[in-house]
Simulated scan of single mutants.
Amino acid sequence: MNRYLPVARQHFLAALASTSVVVKTISAVVVLLYLLAWAVDTSYALGVTPGYLFPPNFWVWTLVTHGLVEQHVWGVAASVGTVMACGRLLEPLWGALELLIFFAVVNVSAGVLAGLSYLLTYVATFDLDFLFAVRIYGAAGFLGGVLVALKQTMGDTTVLRVPQVRLKAAPALVLLLLALLRLSGLLDSCAPLAAYSYGALSGWVYLRFYQRHSRGRGDMSDHFAFASFFPEAVQPAVGLLAGLVHAALVKIKVCRKMVKRYDVGAPSSITISLPGTDPQDAERRRQLALKALNERLKRVEDQSAWPSMDDEEEDDDDEVRTDSQPLLPGGHDTSSSAQRTSRGPSGASLSSTSPSSASQSGGTASPSGVQHPESSIITFEDASSRS
């Protein structure tokens, strides 16, 4: 274990040095508040308490600070790791300012929605513990928003190979893990589960409808639909319900309706584009297609057996030796036995050899004294001219 700690520390310092001021500042504040928690109850003063969030107390500053408060060292590691992942994966695509806006939107939205949920629970049960005994703090809400953003940009990336888990399934898997931890008693409160759920939801709403980029606002692509976060068996039902909710939100002008845009001034032809079809998404799909094509070509090349140059040269030599051998044992070609017919006054006439001449030609001896067998090839002789 001691052998890997210096390597991990070196990689962490290198990653921290390559990040922006926003990432470094958030990480430093998380560490400082953790050290301060040894002397002061930071979860009470800076965390969201549902009874103090709403009037008459109205502790609104806790909506900004609750995502930076940690009480345990593993919480500090999770918080700093989440921020570092944003700096390495999302900040090059968005920029430091957009990352800071996303951090603020997710944390504030998660704090408001979680506090409102506990307030409604108190209205239903009249239990004051849901108002004043609950503390909402930590990086759970921001972690949910970050996983949703990574699903949007790197959804096809494989996280685990055995079993094969892709990044697009990470938000649902982490939610299931937190639910199991709560049911098993390892989590003493439902606050992390609620904060994570609302953080993921608020991050999706912001990225889906409100984030500004080069092609306009939001991401209305099919792979980032709300139903894509659920298993395929329930996606049709979830998609229908999400469509009804979206239609209702469009009527009250909370969300905008998806529209098509036509670029008539394009130089070649009409270009049809949908909001959210970012060039980065197209580049990601192109890289995946090229990778699949290269793997298929490599597989075909491995299965093909290419002949060697030596085998081709031996085949050429055999063909040359075969062509140079005579067709008949006597060394004469069959073409030499054919003779042109004489042309008389009445025209050219052909006559086949008589049996006697065929037998004579078959029994003729070669100059070397070897008698060749009788040939079955028909020869032509000059016909006698008629007077």
Rank of each mutant, 00 (worst) to 15 (best):
P6C: 00
A14S: 10
L36E: 07
L36H: 09
A37R: 08
T42G: 01
Y44E: 14
A45L: 10
A45R: 11
G47P: 03
G47F: 00
G51C: 05
P55N: 08
N57Y: 13
N57H: 14
W61D: 04
T62H: 00
L63M: 12
S79E: 00
G87L: 01
R88L: 07
L90H: 06
A104N: 06
A104S: 11
V105N: 02
V105Y: 04
V106S: 02
N107V: 13
G115K: 01
G115N: 03
G115L: 00
L116R: 04
A124I: 07
D127F: 06
V134S: 01
I136C: 01
Y137G: 01
Y137H: 06
G141I: 02
A149Q: 05
L150Q: 02
Q152M: 08
L167R: 01
A172L: 13
L173H: 11
V174M: 10
L177M: 11
R182Y: 07
R182E: 07
L183G: 08
L186G: 07
L187W: 02
A194P: 05
A195P: 06
L201H: 01
V205I: 14
L207M: 09
R217W: 05
G218C: 03
D222I: 11
G239A: 14
V254F: 12
Y262C: 05
Y262V: 08
A266L: 10
T271A: 10
I272M: 13
G276V: 01
Q287M: 15
A289F: 11
L297Y: 07
V300D: 09
E301I: 02
S304V: 15
E313P: 08
D315I: 08
Q325S: 14
T334A: 11
R340Y: 03
S346W: 08
S346N: 14
A348M: 10
T353I: 08
A358E: 09
Q360E: 12
G363M: 12
G369V: 13
S376R: 15
D382F: 06
